[in-house]
């Protein structure tokens, strides 16, 4: 798979799966994670805190810098959905969907074009069994695990020249390697949600 493949998903806006349907089959109708808002000041305080913290953590650096501080601040672990902003930011641990939601929020507040992205990654059965046990222990869904594959979420960030996107893996704190497909930790499929109807090409 190459970033050319992303074009298909991007153009058709959350319809097609990339490359092959099989890896994504289990999660074909899986919605992307979204943090809810109570519509009151509690969630507004949370969002203001998140964006102000992000600006502080930029240290004067580029807005294109991945917000790794979020992963440093929150452990990676199960999240009970539905979750609201005021609840999410007070957790000790958040799952990939919640961390990606926070990252997507801060990219957007920075003025950087960012979209939710669903991923399928390959690991090993040993790894996924370990995660199954961890998630089972806290009464959260393990629907994100399928044999040696996992469902994952991140952010598709449009680069400055608007001709390229990079995938920010918020719960890992790194950019996904665009050259690595398959293998332990490798990307098997990707679905990008633009949230609008602007078909653009990325090369």
């Amino acid at each position: 798979m190459s970033l050319d493949a992303v074009k298909t998903a991007f153009d058709t806006n959350e319809v097609n799966l990339v490359e092959i349907a099989a890896p994504f089959e289990k999660w074909q109708d899986f919605p992307v994670s979204r943090i809810s808002h109570h519509g009151s000041v509690c969630c507004e305080v949370a969002r203001e805190w998140l964006s102000a913290m992000d600006f502080s953590n930029l240290n004067g650096g580029s807005v294109m810098t991945g917000p790794r501080w979020i992963r440093q601040y929150y452990n990676w672990g199960p999240t009970r959905w539905q979750i609201h902003w005021c609840e999410a930011i007070k957790q000790n641990a958040l799952d990939c969907g919640a961390q990606a939601s926070l990252a997507n929020e801060v990219f957007t507040v920075r003025g950087v074009e960012s979209y939710p992205v669903q991923l399928v990654q390959q690991y090993s059965k040993e790894a996924t069994q370990h995660w199954s046990q961890k998630w089972d222990g806290v009464e959260t869904s393990t629907h994100w695990i399928n044999e040696d594959l996992i469902y994952h979420e991140g952010c598709a960030v449009v680069m400055r020249d608007e001709n390229e996107i990079k995938i920010w893996d918020a719960s890992a704190g790194w950019w996904i390697n665009p050259r690595q497909f398959g293998g332990y930790g490798g990307l098997r499929a990707l679905r990008l949600f633009s949230g609008q109807h602007d078909a653009r090409e990325f090369v």
Binding site: V41, E44, V45, E48, W49, S51, A52, F55, S56, L58, N59, G60
Partner: peptide, 21 residues
């Protein structure tokens, strides 16, 4: 110096949130 000016702007951002909330 550069870091100070970033902190200054960051402080304004925090203040803006504080004022609103």
């Amino acid at each position: 110096v550069g870091q100070w000016w970033h902190l200054f702007e960051s402080m304004l951002k925090w203040c803006s949130s504080i004022e609103a909330l």
